[in-house]
Each structure stands twice: as C-alpha cells, then as structure tokens.
Simulated scan of single mutants.
Amino acid sequence: MTDVAHTTLSPGSSPATSARRPTLAEQSSELRIAIMRLARRLRQERTETELSASQFSTLGWISSEGPLTIGRLADLERVTAPSMNRTVNCLVDAGYATRATAPDDGRKVLVSTTESGEAIIRETRRRRDAWLAKRFAALTPAERETLADATTILGRIIDQ
C-alpha cells in the first residue's frame, strides 16, 4: 500500500494526472534538494585550485562588484568580519587578491582581484556555463522556457 503522506509527483506528471498535489512543504523540500544537488554539481566545474568554496565565492564577489571592503564582503557572504579577514588573507597569500588603502578614506582597505584571480573566475564561469549549456541543449524548447521562467521566479525568491 502506498503511503499517501510520502507520495510525490513523478517527473512529467501533473496535478491533473496525479492522485494528489504535493504539499507546500513537499514542494519546498524537493526544490531545496534539487537546488542543492545542482549547486554541488556546478561547484565541481571549476579550475584546479586549492581554493575553498568560500574563498572562491569571495573572489567572485570581488570580481563582480569591484574593489570591496572586508565589511562589505562579510555582509555579502553572511560571515563575520574576522572570518572574512582570514578568507581574504588566504586569497592575498595565494596571489589572487590584493589589499589597498581606499583613495577617499585612508582608514578603509579595499580588496581587489589580481589578474590570476580574474583568470580563475573567468575559467570557472566558462566551465560552469558550458556544463549547463550542454544540459540545456538536450532539453525541449518548452523545458528551456520553463527553466527561463523558473530562473525569474528563483531570482524573486532570493531577493525577498
């Protein structure tokens, strides 16, 4: 006998063809698991460096946003300033980032990427985009449209 509390929609089924709709909690759980698995898989598509995931993420923020203070990086990564300072120290020691005094305020230190840091970011983004593009190419146009809609929706969820 099927346990109705644990029944979920199979891929490709719709509420109209299924015995019941999944609950909000079930949908949330399934989405969380899918996003975590996708994120984990995408993290595997990166250049061969000794950077941790948090170091790479920090380097990505610096690359995307330009020179940033330790405090701003800590806010973006949702960590403490001392923790971010350790992360930045590792990036600087590895030659992927530099520290410089802010031109407008000598008390502030700005962290920037070096050319080798930018190269790691570019190559990793290229690999991740290529991995996704290969999988997107195998989808139907309707599935790609659904993912485009989901991307917009996920962006709204993130920004709430």
Rank of each mutant, 00 (worst) to 15 (best):
M84L: 07
D104T: 14
T47W: 00
R86A: 09
Y96A: 01
A97Q: 06
A97M: 08
E123R: 15
G71N: 13
R127D: 07
E77Q: 13
D75W: 02
G106R: 15
S64P: 00
F56W: 08
E50P: 02
T124M: 10
T114V: 09
W61D: 04
E65D: 14
R126G: 04
R40N: 02
R41F: 08
P82F: 01
S52C: 06
R125K: 09
V92A: 11
L76Y: 11
C90E: 10
L42Y: 02
S57G: 08
E45N: 14
T113G: 11
S63I: 06
G117N: 07
R43H: 02
L91C: 04
R128E: 02
R86H: 10
S57L: 11
S112F: 08
E123I: 09
M84N: 07
V109W: 07
L73H: 09
R122N: 13
R127C: 06
R43V: 00
S54Y: 04
T113H: 13
T58D: 01
R126N: 13
I70C: 13
G60D: 12
P67N: 14
L42P: 00
L91M: 03
G117Q: 04
N89W: 05
R46E: 05
D104S: 15
D75E: 13
G95E: 04
R128H: 02
F56R: 10
A97C: 12
I121Q: 11
P103Q: 09
R78N: 09
K108F: 12
S112H: 13
R125P: 01
E45D: 10
V111F: 05
N89P: 02
G66D: 06
L68Q: 15
R41G: 04
C90L: 11
G95L: 03
A53M: 04
E48R: 14
L68A: 11
S116K: 09
A97I: 07
P103R: 10
V88T: 01
E123W: 06
T80G: 12
V109F: 09
G71S: 15
R99V: 02
S64I: 07
R72V: 00
R99G: 01
K108E: 15
L73P: 08
S116R: 13
G66I: 08
Y96C: 02
E48N: 13
Q44C: 01
L51R: 00
V79G: 01
R41L: 12
